Amino acid sequence: MTIKVFAPASIGNVSVGFDVLGMAVTPVGDQLLGDIVEISAAVTDVSTLSLSGEFANKLPGDPKDNIVWHCLELFNKELINSTKSVQPVDLVLEKKMPVGSGLGSSACSVVAALVALNEYYQKPFNDSDLLFMMGKMEAQISGSLHYDNVAPCFLGGMQLMVTDTQVITRSLPTFDDYYWIMAYPGIEMSTKEARDALPKQYSRQDLISYGQTLATFIDACYRNDPKQAFANVVDVVAEPYRQSLLPKFIETKQYLLANGASAAGISGSGPTVFVVCENKEIAEQLSNYLTENYLQSPTGFVHICKADTQGARLVS
């Protein structure tokens, strides 16, 4: 038996919700933007991990240093804790996501691996169990526990992280008529470097502004008011301190907002830019601009996307 699981890209923070908001995205058409993990019974009596895909050469040379291998170790530990037997498996990570892109690259690998393992073992763990494991793996990578990429990557749609530690996340309504452009310039951005750029303390006014814009955004989502929602996609927490780290970002965002974009911002910690457009014509125009002006290496790309409402899923 061979199982393949795809996990989609995601926009961490969505500008307005630092560490508490994320949305999964998928390109319009048949192209997959995310990672795939394949699992089958081991050919030998030990588990293995092999790598493939466009961005596999950016991963550690030793598979046992790979996050997917760490997912296997964690999953096996949880199986043993629940008095279930562990079997050797062969894993293949097809790395279709650029590393350090701000598209939830590590989350894609984590989610695809843990969902594939759960499917292979005929679902010994429920969604909450898996989400807790995904959070542990993301914390191991970034040094802090946050679910804003793994939750939408796993469950799909737009997810709001809540204070209930048993629930973790709630789905928000998405504006399905809108298009989301994802523009990855082809350069890497260290999550640690991006976090180190943030101040240790924020002013009272920043705190008020953050709470007000996030609350207004959520309210507008539930009232199906896209204009008010996207008018509040404003980042007072990270973007002011990170924008200088991203070549061409400031002038690019100014152009996008002046030429029809409903909103624009840094996806996760960057360098990918996300752009919200109310129709495909605007999306195509701005996509062409980004292709010509924001890409900085041959590995860069621009995709016109929609919200991915499926999340992680089996593929053939």
Rank of each mutant, 00 (worst) to 15 (best):
M1Q: 11
A9Q: 01
S10W: 03
N13H: 12
G17A: 09
D19Y: 06
A24E: 05
D30H: 13
I36A: 04
V37H: 04
S40K: 10
S40R: 08
D45E: 14
D45H: 15
S52G: 13
G61H: 09
K64E: 13
N66S: 09
V68D: 01
W69P: 06
L72N: 04
L74D: 03
N76T: 12
N81T: 15
N81E: 15
V86I: 15
P88C: 09
K95Q: 03
V99A: 06
A107I: 07
V110T: 03
L114I: 11
S128F: 13
L131E: 01
L131V: 07
M133V: 05
K136F: 09
G143I: 02
A151D: 02
G157T: 00
T163R: 12
S171Y: 09
P173V: 01
A183G: 03
I187W: 07
E188F: 12
T191R: 01
E193M: 13
E193R: 08
A197F: 11
S209G: 12
L214E: 07
T216K: 05
F217I: 09
A229E: 05
A231G: 12
A231Y: 02
V233C: 09
V237F: 12
V237I: 14
V237Q: 01
Y241L: 12
R242C: 02
S244N: 15
L245R: 02
L246P: 06
F249Y: 07
E251Q: 14
K253C: 02
N259Q: 11
S262M: 00
S262R: 08
I266A: 05
I266F: 05
P271A: 01
T272E: 02
T272W: 00
F274E: 05
V275N: 09
K280C: 07
S287I: 02
T291E: 08
L295Y: 01
H303C: 05
A307I: 05
D308I: 03
G311E: 07
G311L: 01
R313V: 10
L314Y: 08
